[in-house]
């Protein structure tokens, strides 16, 4: 598993994603709070978070208090005006540094497309070897919208010069948590 994580991290960083790993959900939460603070997230320039096992329940109320500006009410307008979007991803791919999710719920796409920063949460044990392994769990035969995300939005359409952040997020922060037991998507 740790081998998968290292490969995942190397690949993801090679495409300009930022990867952080924490042992516990508490540590990850603390990181998230300090990150939102550093980015100056406030009621004026907020953050939106789509539903996921990690941030639901008791932690959600705690976060709401500690991070003013963090909203769990996802809408197109809220996502379009937020600086940070947070969502929990279902799987990671070690071979390419890719995050994969059942994105049939529109909220999950809104928070990961519209804000300039996307924070992606993932359980360490969810990193699999390759696309084939992930497609055994997230089956296009059953799910109507599957999203694969590999690094932030990019283009090289002008003079072949790589530029990060066109229509999607210009930063992708991946937070990998060891004790995050994700429920099967």
């Amino acid at each position: 598993m740790s081998h998968s994580f290292e490969s995942f991290k190397t690949r993801a960083e090679a495409v300009s994603a930022e990867v952080h790993r924490f042992g516990t959900q508490e540590e990850a939460t603390a990181f998230l709070l300090s990150f939102l603070q550093e980015e100056g997230v406030s009621p004026q320039e907020g953050a939106v978070c789509a539903a996921g096992t990690f941030l639901d329940g008791a932690r959600k109320d705690d976060l709401k208090v500690k991070a003013p500006g963090l909203s769990f009410e996802v809408s197109q307008a809220a996502s379009a005006s937020s600086k940070v979007g947070i969502s929990q991803l279902d799987w990671g791919i070690a071979a390419t540094g890719t995050l994969v999710q059942d994105a049939s719920a529109v909220d999950k796409r809104l928070v990961s497309t519209l804000p300039p920063i996307h924070v992606a949460l993932l359980g360490t044990d969810r990193i699999l070897a390759d696309m084939n392994s992930v497609l055994e769990h997230l089956r296009p035969q059953e799910l109507n919208y599957i999203s694969c995300i590999t690094g932030p939005s990019r283009t090289a359409d002008i003079e072949r010069v790589l530029t990060i952040g066109v229509h999607g997020p210009e930063r992708l922060i991946i937070v990998v948590v060891d004790d995050l037991q994700q429920v099967m998507a």
Binding site: R11, V15, S75, Q76, A95, T96, G97, T98, A103, S104, A105, V106, L110, P140, Q141, L143, N144, Y145, I146, S147, C148, I149, T150, G151, P152, S153, R154, G168
Partner: peptide
């Protein structure tokens, strides 16, 4: 590239915003 930034697999109707 090993993979493009985004790959979407759309197999049916999804909800609008």
């Amino acid at each position: 590239q090993l993979l493009t930034s985004y790959v979407s697999m759309i197999s049916g109707q999804v909800p609008n915003t």
